[in-house]
Write a protein that binds this DNA or RNA. Structure first.
Length: 415
DNA sequence: TAGGCCATCTGGTCCT
DNA sequence: AGGACCAGATGGCCTA
């Protein structure tokens, strides 16, 4: 009688072909009709209860038959997982060649009747249709499984792409475009790093604008070197006098005498909390914080014209202003190459600690009150949503957000 | 409601 | 013979 094994049910084998005990379901006739045209057959899947979207997590499969259909099998789709394991050959699309047993030259070849192959010989039209139907079902399952593996690969690719916002799910085509552009951007970054090592490009401001990169990809634009310059945040040129700003390495310190306003020969400084705003008579304005970051509103103030910020934005070195650092009386120019390197190192150290701090924060919220980074951390933290804000200098890289949400499961998106 | 995206089915083709 | 791959067709779901 009927087999109750799913493997027997689904696999095409000689037993099915050689006897007439196969199932006789009221399957859609079009499935059994050989089609010679490439135009697919229109079949109404709703009629037989097929769910076109299986639940991936549970590996639930589509419902093959309608509820009123009385199957000759008690539970024909009972062991679908075992079936999937059977048809899943490998994780790659490239099939692995299996070693075949060497043929025995002495073994007589099997003879078949003239004009009949193994399928058609001694088979009634009903049997042939049943065979074709089973082959079609197997092919459908393989195709479905193949597409699932393809989608899983796309999901893995999505995981390593720095989308913006973080929870954005790119479509398939967007994922491929973004991956292409991202790889290009990373390769250009490496090239730029080589230039840095050779001294052709300064290091500060070296980062990628992932949002722009993603927008390029979604719009289907291929990243070229010109486009890359648009998404690659190179530092402003020294001759920019258009009011643009640039990051620099500075440190704000409390004013002497507890005041929050100080006038100097080059301008004025206003201290608000841990942030110092300086207005330079020569047009160069800057903002600094106690944590070591800052920016100029006019790059012209960078370099030789930085006398003003020298007063209260240095963690080291001499100072000749009354009430500030009486132990140092040096009068040499403050913002020289040496001090720049000191600032730079301090800046990098602070940045590294911030990164570490980000990871610590994911594990222990109480550490967030660290006094060392309290000022800027508070600027970067949204206490209501328990998230770091993205519009800050250090936490605008969503790679760290991804790590945050994935329990520090770091992905290979480091530059 | 139109359009985009997606999963699925399907037949054809190529290869083993 | 059968599996992998492909592309066309179709319908479901979602969103503007």
């Amino acid at each position: 009688m009927f087999s109750t094994s799913f493997e027997d049910y689904c696999d095409f084998n000689e037993s099915i072909c050689s006897n007439d005990s196969g199932f006789d379901r009221s399957y859609n006739d079009t499935l059994c009709t050989p089609i010679s045209t490439s135009t697919p057959v229109i079949h109404d899947t709703s009629d037989n209860g097929i769910s076109l979207t299986p639940a991936k997590q549970t590996h639930a499969r589509r419902k093959l038959f309608s509820d009123d259909y009385e199957s000759p099998f008690p539970n024909p789709i009972e062991d679908i997982t075992a079936f999937e394991d059977n048809i899943k050959v490998d994780n790659t699309s490239t099939p692995i060649k299996k070693e075949r047993k060497p043929k025995d030259p002495n073994k007589p070849k099997r003879k078949y009747a003239n004009g009949k192959n193994r399928v058609t010989r001694c088979k009634s039209p009903t049997q042939i249709l049943r065979i074709k139907r089973n082959r079609r079902m197997k092919a459908n399952d393989r195709e479905r499984n193949r597409m699932h593996m393809l989608n899983e690969a796309l999901d893995r690719l999505r995981c390593v792409l720095p989308t913006f916002p973080e929870d954005t799910k790119l479509t398939k085509i967007e994922t491929l475009r973004f991956a292409h552009n991202y790889i290009f951007a990373l390769s250009q970054t490496l090239e730029s790093l080589d230039n840095i090592n050779s001294g052709q490009i300064p290091t500060e401001g070296l980062s990628l604008n992932y949002e722009k990169l993603q927008n390029y990809s979604i719009q289907g634009e291929k990243i070229t070197k010109d486009a890359f310059r648009d998404i690659f945040l190179l530092p402003s040129k020294p001759d920019d006098h258009d009011g643009s700003y640039r990051n620099f390495q500075g440190f704000s310190r409390p004013f002497p005498n507890g005041s929050n306003f100080l006038q100097t020969p080059e301008g004025v400084l206003i201290n608000v909390g841990n942030v110092t705003v300086s207005v330079n008579n020569k047009g160069g304005n800057c903002i600094t914080s106690t944590t070591g970051s800052g920016f100029f509103t006019n790059p012209a103030s960078f370099g030789d014209d930085l006398n003003q910020q020298n007063y209260y934005q240095r963690p080291y070195g001499p100072c000749n202003y009354e009430g500030y650092d009486t132990t140092n009386t040096g009068t040499e120019e403050y913002f020289n190459q040496k001090n720049y390197e000191l600032f730079k190192n301090a800046f990098e150290n602070a940045k590294d600690k911030r990164y570490q701090k980000t990871i610590e924060f994911t594990n222990d919220y109480s550490k967030f009150t660290s006094p060392v980074y309290n000022c800027n951390d508070m600027h970067s933290y949204n206490g209501e949503s328990n998230e770091y804000l993205q519009n800050t200098y250090y936490y605008n890289d969503q790679r760290y957000y991804r790590n945050f949400y994935r329990n520090n499961n770091i992905v290979n998106a480091q530059i």
